[in-house]
Amino acid sequence: MQYRRKQDIHMSAVAINPLNRAVRFYEAPIGKKAVMAVTGVMLVGYVIGHLLGNLQIYSSDPQQINRYAAFLHNPSNALALWGVRLILLAAVVLHIVSSVQLWQQNREARPLRYYKKADVPTSYAARTMLWSGPIVAAFVIFHVLHLTTGSILPLHDIGPNMPDVRYNVVSGFQNYWVSGFYIFAMILLCMHLYHGLWSMFQSVGISHPRYTSKLKKGAAIVAILIAIGNCSIPIAVMAGLVTY
């Protein structure tokens, strides 16, 4: 039990340049969490933007959403579109890689499980990030295969670089299995965002006794609004409110 060590943290040994700072940052679990928070912000921003775009399906002008799609697919915007896609892809990769590394480290921190372990009243969402994360990721792949590449159902086009989004969405969601999976995934996304949104504030250190509870409530409201917005589309299609 005796311990005697020279203090082995000599920062002076490290010449501080931005690269060293970055390495040290990523080596630290707190750094990885910050990476997850920042990439999380980007992804949430995308989710919200994507949702706003999708909601155009409710426009009284049935062609509104298709015009929007055509605008995005316009070849003169290709550079911007791919730029955004690459940034999002990078964010997704960083988000997943850091979470896997943290998960691995955390698993090793308790080699022997408890015989009995209770979950004290913490949020269900917090404890299920590890499940909601991969399922949402799987959903994203499905979603891209479904509506971007057309690998699940054949896609209709109005013209070159002008997808018939309205048709593709409505035909897809008329399939109960597809709709069911979308809704299920959106509920998980909601939970993931609820914990993730609050968590990102915590991870980058924005927290104070006076507004912690407000942050938590705010995170819940945003997550639920996103889920309602996204789920409403398959539901509206199945209910016959949105038609082609």
Binding site: M1, Q2, Y3, R4, R5, K6, Q7
Partner: peptide, 13 residues
């Protein structure tokens, strides 16, 4: 001081 190596600590002793 323990961290600096100036004190040898013997807990549970």
């Amino acid at each position: 001081q323990i961290g600096a190596g100036a004190v040898e600590m013997y807990p549970r002793t």
